[in-house]
Design a protein around this nucleic acid. Structure first.
Lengths: 214, 214
DNA sequence: AGATTATTTATTGTCGACAATATAGCTCAT
DNA sequence: ATGAGCTATATTGTCGACAATAAATAATCT
């Protein structure tokens, strides 16, 4: 039985994408009536979608005033990466404890399949490869809390920064090596090392971004 | 101008307390119509309150089926403390960077004022003192994300475990010493040490609980 | 009888209307 | 002009009714 999808679900996802992609500008106000008309649903549906968006930290709500899309700032990005570092570091530690051998091997295979690209051009880090790696480690933690916080609470905001500040940067082969070392630590069931490597990996990523925004 | 409070706000807080205190049983289903009648508001208000509860991880929602209060489990508690360790560790690290001197001194004074009680009876850790300490460190991180995640997303669940599994335990004077060392590290602006000490502190707390639940 | 399919019932999802509140614009006194 | 207070307008908060879906029950077939 497929999970049923309500109008609120669809509208939530549509709104989220519009915000992340910058179609709805950062800092702009969300008018419920206008959105209801635009997405062809009732205000109740829009309100539910907006409520969920605030869970993702993509908007801020004030009673009787309304919701605004968050504004992006250098400071916000730094704090965001601090949270990411803490949570994903812990995810790596837990993955070393809980991730089944077969899943670990799959990640290995995944990295291997990207080896060629890395040596050749600079296509790895850009999109799917990186996201997929982190996604699997997070899932490997077997912690529902961590998973929802990261995948529903942090990653969309990270993506929003990536898209709107145009940071797709190189950092290709380095990232690939770092991924390799992390999964090795997990395979060795060395949670402490896995956490440390993941935190370093995210710190490098943050430093790289700080450079770009100089 | 005081922040306006809507019916949804009040109902949300009331429901949250009822769940944390166990008045509404863990694992039980939330019937919107019944709750609307009980709290004397419309279903729309209840629905909004329920949406916010799911942000706190106090309930789980399934489309077209409804919301259930989470069930408490040993495993869930362990994972919860892992998240807490990661986030509060990072909060301590950031507090060492961002917390103003005056705020640090206030925490010092706070701890000093509890010194007498600690030496005498076993009243410190029990309630307010502990919560207040952690609250101030978290605020000191100056990270809105961390603050909302911990104070609105984790702490109520922690309290729910405390109340319903009846874990108020001793751990008094030890905790007090640990707090002292943490704030000293923060005063010395040693973020790395502050994080490590905070993580240890929470680990001890977790171990203490594991013992209680044997 | 046991399982399978209708049918009924209970509950959630969605809607449009109205109430409460905040914002913008105007009036007027200084 | 400028600011304070008032009025008008726009927007959010709340409500009750209806639609869509899932759970519970009854009816049917093998």
């Amino acid at each position: 039985m497929a999970i049923p999808i309500t109008h609120a679900d669809r509208t939530f996802v549509a709104l989220r994408n519009a915000i992340v992609e910058g179609e709805i500008l950062a800092g702009s106000k969300l008018n419920e009536a206008e959105l209801a008309h635009r997405y062809e649903v009732s205000r109740a549906v829009i309100r539910e979608a907006i409520n969920r968006l605030s869970t993702c930290n993509l908007i801020e709500r004030r009673p009787n005033v309304g919701a605004r899309v968050v504004t992006l700032s250098y400071d916000g990005l730094i704090h965001l990466y601090a949270v990411r570092e803490a949570l994903e570091g812990m995810a790596a530690r837990l993955a070393a404890k809980h991730m089944p051998e077969t899943d670990i091997d799959e990640v290995y295979a995944l990295l291997a399949s990207h080896a060629a690209e890395v040596k050749g051009e600079q296509t790895y880090y850009q999109e799917a490869g990186d996201v997929d790696f982190h996604y699997r480690i997070i899932k490997g933690s077997h912690s529902p809390q961590l998973t929802t916080m990261l995948l529903e609470g942090i990653y969309h905001l990270v993506r929003m920064y990536r898209v709107q500040l145009g940071m797709a940067g190189p950092r290709v082969s380095n990232a690939w090596d770092e991924h390799k070392h992390i999964i090795m630590a997990i395979k060795n069931r060395d949670g402490e090392l896995a956490e440390m490597l993941m935190r370093r990996h995210i710190q490098y990523s943050r430093l790289h971004i700080e450079e770009l925004l100089h």
